[in-house]
Structures are given as C-alpha cells and as structure tokens.
Design a protein around this nucleic acid. Structure first.
Lengths: 114, 114
DNA sequence: CATCTATATTGCTAAATAGAGATATATCAA
DNA sequence: TTGATATATCTCTATTTAGCAATATAGATG
C-alpha cells in the first residue's frame, strides 16, 4: 500500500493545476468522455489525456469502457484525506487570534464543548 | 490582485511536497527559526530556505525579524480557500452511493441542470 | 474489408523544480 | 575590529512537467 504521504503528494499535486481542477469541476456534473473534456479548453487531446492520467494516478478519477469511449468519472474519496489534512489547521484561520485565545481559555475553564 | 485560481495553484503546489507539509506541521506548534526547521530533515539549509520561499509565495508562512534570525510563522488563511474548494466535493464522499443517487434524483426533480 | 471516431502512446521541446555546494550578507559578541 | 552565527543568494545538475504533432490502437459502421 502506498504511504499516505505519497498519496497526498499526488492529490495535492493533481489539484495544483487549473486545468485539472476544471476537469474535476466538470466531472462533478457527471461522467464525461475524453473529447467532452477536451472541448472547453484550448488544449490538445493528448494534453488532456495526460492530465487525466495524473488525476487517475492520484485516484481522483476512474475510467470505464463503453465501445471506443473511456468515460471518466469523479472519484472524490482522496479529497476526504486532503480535507482532513487541511482541517487540522482550521483553528488557525476560522477565528481571530483573540477569539482563539478566548476559546481556548473557555475550554480550559469549562471542559469539552460541541 | 492575483487571480483566485493562480493562488490555488500556488497553495496546492506548496502542499504537494512532503517536506513543506512537515514544515507547516512544525509551525503549528509555534514560530521557528530557519535552522530549527532545517534540523529534522536531511536537507541542506539552502534547500529548506527554498521551500520556505515557496510557502511564502503561497502566503502560507510569513517572516519576522529578530536580530540575525528571520522567524517563520504559519499563516493558515490560504488554507481556508483551499478547504472551501475541496469542500464543494464533500457530497461526493461523505454520503453513501445510495444517498448520492437520491441527492442527484432530487436535483433532477427540482430541475437543476446537469 | 475500408474507414471513421475515440483515445492512447511516442517522441520531442521548453520551462519549472528539488537538490547541492560555495559564497554573500547581516547581526551579534568578544 | 574580528570572528561567529543565521540566513539568503548564486550557480549548477538532474528530474519532472506541460505542451505539441504525429502516429498507433480499438471499436463502430458503411
């Protein structure tokens, strides 16, 4: 099994490209053929196929078979891991520092809240 | 102002490297000097400095000044954006397939385009 | 079979990246 | 001032990446 950290490298690396994020956004509306994914971009078909390979390597899409089509569908599971990783930093952004300090003091004073 | 999409390229690109993720994890415990960040790795100081530049370019860390030290501290705000982006896909992983299908059917019943 | 369509693969180039060692700069301390 | 420490910058190399055009393959259809 691939180390979790390597998997994160692949997932975040895949998300680092705007074309690939746009492909995922498109796939959120349902599966698509490669040509359907090529259409909105001014990029060649081989280039999109390469992006799809990166997404597939990260586990973010999977491919089917339907005659000469290889429909692409979203597989969001790896995003759950990525979300969890980022979530560990939530306390650093969703409260101002003062509020965070107050919150921590409140925790210490009262015990476990929601 | 930098386009939001470019900012995401930088943030996800920064997170795609395990050394940089480890640096952020370390900074969650408080600010650190460059040498303190070098110590846990078998990487040279210039290499860590380069990673810090990438993190700074993504807005994920900021630098202070204290004598000859340039303390590095976490700036998690850009992670909020990244989290929001990923969050748009939450419904694809935090519900069972049956529930997802029900959700899609519900959308279709309400006339939401696919 | 011949051909058309969908997609993958190959081979290339240019640019970006991670890493190193050497050296420069800035500040402190004696 | 001299030297020590912290960090940045320069220059180089190897690897990876995004992109393209050309070509190969797989399946449908005339």
């Amino acid at each position: 099994m691939r180390a979790a950290s390597q998997q994160m490298d692949l997932v975040f690396g895949a998300l680092a490209d705007p074309t690939r994020r746009a492909i995922l956004a498109r796939l959120a509306d349902g599966e698509a053929t490669v040509n359907e994914l090529v259409a909105p971009f001014e990029l060649s078909q081989p280039t999109i196929s390469k992006h799809l390979k990166v997404l597939e390597g990260a586990g973010l899409v999977s491919r089917g078979r339907n005659a000469q089509f290889r429909p692409v569908r979203l597989n969001a599971k790896p995003l759950a891991e990525a979300s969890r990783w980022i979530g560990d930093y939530r306390r650093f952004w969703d409260e101002s520092l003062d509020q965070l300090e107050a919150y921590v003091k409140d925790l210490q004073a009262k015990g476990e809240p929601s």
